[in-house]
Computed example of a mutant assay.
Amino acid sequence: MSAQRLSALRETLSAIEGSGFRRRPALPFGLGAVDARLAAGGLRLDALHEVAGESADLSDDAAATLFLAGIAARAWGPVLWVVRRRDLFAPGLMQAGLSPERVIHAEAADDAEVLALMEEGLRHRGLGAVIGEAKRVAMPATRRLQLAAEGGRTIALMLKRHGRVDGDPLAVPSAAITRWRIGCAPSTPLPRGVAGVGRPRWRVALARQRGGETGEWIMEACDETGRCALPAAMADRTAGAHGNATPRAA
């Protein structure tokens, strides 16, 4: 771990202390069918959550990245995003509701440095979200991140990237509270006669949840406020099954 990188991060974090944002124990999606499946009624803010693309395809990787950006956009304050490569596209993040002004970028040399910077950010307690991108993360490292997150209100999010040889990034045991798999689905159909492409859709799978069930949904991608939606037909089916309307937007 570079002492220079760590010192620079500490200086940046010190500058944002005392932000005073309202904090909540969990961050709901605002989708009844999804939040009802989550043990905390949303994503626990004092916990680690992992996300991976459904495949190694760049479109699935981008979908997983935007899924994380939408979660961070709905968190309460500044966001630390630790990357291994400079491929974050600020306009894309903004389309998912995450303003560049909220993002603190940190570039790490390897996965070990990603984890060290994430842990530093989580222990600071002055951030709304900490996001890290890594390929190989052992169980002890995820336990350290989970322990660093506990007792705070900074949600820990990890993008597990596909390796060149490795298979499923979520196959390795982890201490993460939830683990998600995101893939691209056919976009929302436009009305007949209207040219263009409809709102992107994702296949969202809650692959694992500590103390809770799994689940799969088709979601419309994050809008400019970071909120996803359930396609109208799916929302209508859920409403019919439960006797009341299910919100369509997170």
Rank of each mutant, 00 (worst) to 15 (best):
A232Q: 09
A233E: 15
M139Q: 08
E17I: 02
Q4A: 15
S19A: 14
M234Y: 05
R181S: 07
P91H: 09
G32R: 13
H49Y: 03
L159C: 09
D35Q: 06
D35K: 02
T12S: 10
R164V: 10
A138T: 02
A149F: 01
R37Y: 04
R123A: 01
I155Q: 00
E11I: 11
H105P: 11
M139K: 04
A239L: 12
I182M: 08
E220G: 07
A249S: 15
P186T: 13
A15Q: 13
P173L: 12
P200M: 09
G121E: 08
D57K: 07
P100T: 09
E107D: 13
G183P: 01
T214D: 04
L170Q: 06
L66W: 10
T178M: 07
G126H: 01
Q4G: 02
A232S: 09
R208H: 15
A205W: 12
R23L: 06
E150P: 00
R84C: 09
G215N: 10
A116N: 06
G196C: 11
G212W: 04
W81P: 06
R199C: 06
M1K: 03
A75H: 00
L88W: 02
I182S: 02
A72M: 03
W202V: 10
G240E: 15
R237D: 15
A156F: 06
C228A: 11
A116M: 11
D111V: 11
G132M: 11
E213M: 11
P169V: 05
L230H: 09
V103N: 04
R102F: 09
D168Q: 07
T12C: 00
R210E: 11
G211N: 02
A73R: 11
L115W: 02
R179F: 03
G243S: 11
D35P: 12
R164A: 14
A62Q: 12
Q4E: 14
R5E: 14
D87W: 07
G215T: 14
R181M: 05
P231R: 01
